[in-house]
């Protein structure tokens, strides 16, 4: 099942295949590359956590958390972060079975997408019912809005990315052929989930 059915769509192959594009190279680079990228991405959030603790320590004009600002409801934040963790876990499980059982992987990915979309939905709901105004809320409100928006933006991009894995998790699809990249993507989502958990603990409890 591979070489023959490939004419099924579109034009015939126009490019001679070169060995350096083989899946082995993919397997070689995707994990390391993703770890480095995750490190870079972590630095992005480190800056926001630094902002949290720095502004909190300075408490300029007694305005870190002023009288108009309260912690947002913890259960909503908890639902958001649980959905994110679930999404990451499902993607990891899907990526594990990507090479052997594409249909199982696809099912996991669909569930993960569902969790991710719900997560974004709850996040939007939370933004709409924050209970404070980023302009008036002081330092805490700024960090909350900034950190959560950046995290959510990354989740949205990750969900589109997940869409490509769903589309490609077929017997002849790319995800099946290159499971290393699916695994690396799983790592990325685990990292986002980790950031989500830390952000939950920091933003809702400190």
């Amino acid at each position: 099942m591979s070489q023959q059915s490939q004419q099924s769509r579109g034009l015939p192959n126009l490019v001679a295949s070169a060995p350096e594009w083989s899946t082995d190279v993919d397997a070689r680079v995707s994990s390391v590359g993703m770890w480095i990228f995750m490190g870079a991405n972590a630095m992005l959030f480190v800056a926001f956590f630094f902002a949290f603790f720095y502004l909190r320590a300075l408490n300029n004009a007694d305005n870190w958390m002023n009288i108009w600002t309260v912690h947002p409801r913890r259960y909503i934040g908890g639902i958001i972060v649980l959905l994110l963790v679930a999404c990451a876990g499902l993607v990891v499980m899907g990526a594990r079975s990507a090479a052997k059982a594409p249909s199982t992987a696809r099912m996991f990915f669909w569930l993960a997408l569902l969790a991710g979309v719900l997560c974004c939905g709850f996040q939007v709901y939370e933004f709409k019912h924050l209970g404070f105004d980023p302009q008036m809320g002081g330092g805490y409100a700024s960090v909350f809005v900034g950190l959560k928006s950046v995290l959510m933006a990354e989740i949205v991009v990750a969900m589109i990315w997940l869409g490509t894995h769903i589309a490609q998790a077929t017997p002849i699809g790319d995800t099946t052929a290159r499971p290393a990249s699916a695994a690396a993507f799983g790592n990325f989502l685990v990292m986002l989930a980790g950031v989500g958990v830390v952000a939950y603990l920091v933003l809702y409890f400190i």
Partner: peptide
């Protein structure tokens, strides 16, 4: 844009 106050010292930023 959103009028947050990360860098405005009178509003809790720095």
């Amino acid at each position: 844009t959103l009028n947050t106050t990360f860098f405005i010292s009178s509003a809790g930023g720095s």
